[in-house]
Design a protein around this nucleic acid. Sequence first.
DNA 1: AAGTATTTTGCAACAAAGTTGCATTCTATA
DNA 2: TATAGAATGCAACTTTGTTGCAAAATACTT
Lengths: 139, 139
Amino acid sequence: MGAQTEFILKTSSLSITSSRKKILEIFLSASTALAHQDIEKLAEQYDRVTIYRTLQTFLDRGIIHTIPTTDNTIKYALCSDDCITSGHHHDNHVHFLCDQCGRTLCLDDVSIPAITLPKGYSMKEINMVVNGICKTCME
Amino acid sequence: MGAQTEFILKTSSLSITSSRKKILEIFLSASTALAHQDIEKLAEQYDRVTIYRTLQTFLDRGIIHTIPTTDNTIKYALCSDDCITSGHHHDNHVHFLCDQCGRTLCLDDVSIPAITLPKGYSMKEINMVVNGICKTCME
DNA sequence: AAGTATTTTGCAACAAAGTTGCATTCTATA
DNA sequence: TATAGAATGCAACTTTGTTGCAAAATACTT
Ligand SMILES: [Mn+2]
Ligand SMILES: [Mn+2]
Ligand SMILES: [Zn+2]
Ligand SMILES: [Zn+2]
């Protein structure tokens, strides 16, 4: 079970520590994106500061990505294997925020359509976030 | 000069106060979206709490809208006249975040393309945010 | 125009979120 | 197993956001 987390850390040339493994396991078993606070609760044996630094490290290596939200919270989710092996984030899927259950989901199968920017603008990254009611809450 | 701000406040059935006029003037003369902190600096005669409450009021009335960003900051920008008269926000344009100058721009002429969500999801709102280099910084 | 009801503001106190420096502990490697 | 370098925990601090309440300003009635 720890095999996958250790593989990810090694691939990203990060030293293997118990907090990094724990936080990775949390992401691997999560079905939704997580806020810093969610992780704090699920990894309460570790210091808040360690979690801040670990998330930043994972972002730098393309292990996780952020999802912008309309409230003031950032959500984090695992990147695809592809990001992890290439060492930087380059996903292209839409994110969904459920107004009822509050969950944030990566819609891996919905890709962001291309847009044309006005002349003079150069695009580096694009984010698309949809609010609404998720499948589970609709039932 | 205060005519336009007073008109907006009256249209939204808000009482006319000096802080509301000042904050509206700031938005009207701004070419970019503003963070809470930007407004604090430009309206330093008013209490921080008043600015929080005023922004919330303006959001409720569809006078301004928020722009989600990849860092943990919310930017605010004026809505179109259409939102103001109808009393709720319903813009549909792309937002641009310049990685160089840090400015956040409403690309009023670039509309968000439609997407198809997986079965069972219901869409209420959609946001599209592009990072890159803006026109001014490219020159 | 003055008086009154209602709304808004500022202040204080607080809570939550995020940052930094440094001593200690842990990890990788020889 | 010894050691250099990296990561962690802790304390102190800053920034950001929230709440209750008294004072002030605004809108409304007469
Ligand atoms: Mn995602
Ligand atoms: Mn806008
Ligand atoms: Zn839901
Ligand atoms: Zn720029």
